[in-house]
Amino acid sequence: MAKSRTRDRMKNEINAGSMADIAFLLLIFFLVTTTIVEDKGITVKLPPWSEEEPDITRLKERNVYAVLVNAQNQLLVRGEPMRVRDLKNNAKEFISNPQKRSDLAEKPTKAIISLKNDRGTNYDTYLRVYNELKAAYNELWDELSRRKFGVPYSDDLPLAYRKAIKGEIPFVLSEAEPTNFGEE
């Protein structure tokens, strides 16, 4: 009797037919509850904190690209009003200075972007301006990379290449303490 029972048991198998259903249920649960958040953005390296204000008056005026954004989200670039969409090309011309004009940067390594906003400036505008300035540099890097190495600029380039490019056109952006005229 006992013998035959064990033999029966060995023959028994767990029915795995519902396994797929269980797995499906779990799968659907995870599909519904999770969100693939795309985490993208403009990466910025902030300067270390120091109590005293950096002194930019020592710099030659021709090397400083001053961008001011007021509380009405208007742009003043080197004393002239400008629209955000013109900013990129203007900045590119300033940095590379292809015609060697005497009022633009001496050379890309000396160019400094100075960005100053108001506490009442919209974050959206601020980021758009920052984005344009970054885009100007990205395009310059790309052009240089194509000229020098024959490949488009990307973060996947070998470090030596990137260093060479950034050595020739360094991204120097100084952010001044914002004014406070228009905060709500």
Binding site: K40, G41, I42, T43, L46
Partner: peptide, 17 residues
């Protein structure tokens, strides 16, 4: 931003799409 700088957290990503 000022507080982040004071805390030594300098790598910042402005999230955007």
């Amino acid at each position: 931003k000022t507080q982040l700088r004071k805390s030594g957290q300098l790598k910042v990503n402005y999230s955007a799409k």
